[in-house]
Computed example of a mutant assay.
Amino acid sequence: MDPLISVDDLSEQLAGSRPPVLLDVRWSLLGPPGRQDYEQDHLPGAVFVDLDTELSAPPGAGGRHPLPAAADLQAVFRRAGITAEREVVAYDADNGSAAARAWWLLRWAGHPRVRVLDGGYRAWVARGNPVTAEVPEVVPTDFQVVPDSLPVINADEAARMAEDGRLLDARAPERYRGEVEPVDPRAGHIPGARNAPFASNVTEDGTWRPPEDVAALFRELGVDGTSRVATYCGSGVTACSALLALEHAGLSGPANPAALYAGSWSHWTTDPTRPAKTGETP
């Protein structure tokens, strides 16, 4: 199943007898909080989940967006009305970079059917579809989180992946090269990592490029569907977008899933002995 769903297909599903659970995951690195957008209007039936406080543990030694504990995540998903039987669709403002965090966490938790709305809220509204400020009444569920259904690596494993596999840095090129660093204490990237900016996978309107185009970008970085691959970013959010892109391109799947360095650069830089490379990696 493609990890993306079009606006038209979602509209059809929502009109059916068994609509998917909708998660509003609008979020911005520098704010304001996504809940403000949700309270103004959202897709009918959507439940807001906060990326900073519900899809992440508190910031600290593990980075700015550490993975939440399985029990905490289970409580969030139960509150949102998620069951193992119903499909889940997550959306954000446009390009899926935040919704992919919910997509990946649900997959990591063992949910079999999760997708991200292609183009997000912006594409939904552009097609003339309805929005509402009404907050739905949700019946809590007994959804069971099965943790570690997708692979996660630590800093040492990320360093090894850069040497004997493919470690992809999903940040913007200028952050990867160390020319700017707006949030973390040091600039640069993990030595040996290749830059795979998440923004390269989408068009200007926030919709995703065709799978073959995304696959071509990854193949230029040596990712062919058989090599070992892991992704990271600033804090583990847009790295999930890179994982979604790999699956969308057919280069990651159940037989050879790519891994997430969840702490990402915000964790890597907590240890001053870990090296930081600037410029391009050959």
Rank of each mutant, 00 (worst) to 15 (best):
W208D: 07
G34N: 09
L244E: 00
Y176F: 15
R228F: 02
A80Y: 11
R79T: 12
Y261A: 00
R160A: 10
D2H: 14
S149N: 06
S266C: 01
D205Y: 11
V76S: 09
P19K: 05
D8T: 13
V125T: 11
I5M: 06
A46W: 11
V88S: 03
L51E: 10
G31S: 07
L106W: 02
A98G: 07
P282D: 11
V135N: 05
D8W: 12
A71C: 10
T226M: 09
F198H: 13
P3D: 03
T203S: 09
G119C: 07
R194Q: 08
S264E: 01
C240L: 01
P136R: 04
W268S: 03
A99K: 11
G234F: 06
S11Y: 15
P20T: 01
R194H: 13
R113S: 13
A187F: 05
Y38W: 08
V125Y: 04
S241D: 07
A15F: 12
D118Y: 02
T207D: 06
D8R: 14
L251R: 03
S241N: 14
Y38G: 01
D72W: 12
V76C: 07
A46L: 01
S6M: 10
S252Y: 07
E181I: 02
P140E: 08
E87M: 08
D169Q: 00
L167I: 00
L221V: 07
F198E: 04
A258V: 02
G34T: 12
R122T: 15
M161C: 12
S235K: 03
V116K: 10
V145W: 09
W27A: 08
D213I: 13
P275L: 13
V180Q: 12
D184S: 00
G96Y: 06
T83C: 12
W108D: 00
T238F: 09
F143H: 11
V125D: 02
S97D: 01
L117V: 04
P130Y: 08
P185W: 09
S252C: 08
V88Q: 05
S17F: 07
V47N: 06
T203G: 15
R35S: 14
R171C: 00
T203A: 13
P282C: 10
S264R: 04
A162F: 00
A70L: 08
E12S: 14
A93G: 14
E174F: 13
K277N: 10
